[in-house]
Simulated scan of single mutants.
Amino acid sequence: MSAVAWIILLIFLLSALGLLGWVVLGNSLVRVPSGSLGLLMAKGRATDQTLLPGPHFVFAFRRRMVEEYPSVEMAYRADGIGDPADGNTGGGSATLESPGPPLRVTLGDRTEATVAMTVRFQLVPERLREVHERFGPYGIFGVVRDQSARAIRATLSDTDFGIEQFFGADRTACEERLAEAVRKAVQPDGIKVTGFVLGAVELGKTGEVIQATVRARYELERERAEAETRSVRALNDANLEERLGAPSDAAWRYRETDLWRELVERTNALQVALRAGPGSAPPPGRAADDSANPAGARPDE
């Protein structure tokens, strides 16, 4: 074999090796998008290797795939505003927020309440394999919903909890206690709570009684203020009657504002009727009168 043939064979082998190396290198580079975590799957099974956002080198000859999970905060809102059927409630990157119905609980003083809340959480990267094997990408919001509901019901059913805990300075302490209970409930599942917000609390008929009691106090204050206003107005009217015999119109100008106010309060709407001119259409309700009277005839004719 001549030297030229060896050179041609060597060039061919080097080109083939370079092409093979380029293909292997291209297939071995895995890029995890920003805001996501990648769980490396080998032969369909989850591994302990979690890929952070950015490029990573994974040997291409392994039968592997990367399952993506969100690395940013997710939120579960139990306030009844959104509809879970409107969008995906899974843990994929398609959505980072899931709505749900408010939570019905029974307090320690046997009062029924409907509690709205928002739980913000993140996945623990070191425990991503456990999250994948237990819940998968579409079961994260479900476990947060169930565990947080169980923790809140257990906390609010304690005997030292009552409706007073939802008002004033006690509300802040109640919110912190509920946040700690939810944090401990989801932590064993590889989920870290980053925020908890206690929303509106509906107390049913008990809340109606509280609102009626508060309104009664302010309505009494309003009646007292109106009584004082009526007394002062009566005195002003008495002084006005004494000055009506005076030739000056200053007294009437004093009462002009009150008279206009009374007119506006008594009249819901002012209607102005304009008489139709020659050749214009008659106003509504006059067709019967016009048909009864001939054109140009007066009523007495």
Rank of each mutant, 00 (worst) to 15 (best):
A269W: 13
D48I: 06
T95Y: 13
P53T: 03
V32N: 07
A154Y: 04
D158V: 08
K43Y: 10
W260C: 02
G54K: 04
L19R: 12
G21Q: 11
T206S: 05
A295S: 08
V214I: 15
G80F: 00
T159D: 15
I152V: 15
R110L: 09
E221D: 08
L96F: 06
G80S: 04
A269K: 12
S71M: 10
V131A: 03
W252H: 05
T213C: 03
D289S: 10
D249I: 15
E97C: 09
V4Q: 13
D146L: 15
R63C: 05
V209E: 14
E202T: 01
L107S: 06
G100T: 10
S231V: 11
K192I: 13
L203W: 01
E219H: 10
A287H: 08
P125T: 06
A173F: 03
E241R: 11
L270T: 08
E265D: 14
S2K: 13
F12E: 06
R77H: 15
Q271D: 10
L274K: 09
E219C: 00
V182F: 02
Q271P: 02
V66I: 14
A225H: 07
V131E: 01
A288G: 04
L203A: 07
R171F: 00
M117T: 10
E73R: 12
G18Y: 13
N27F: 13
P294H: 00
K192P: 02
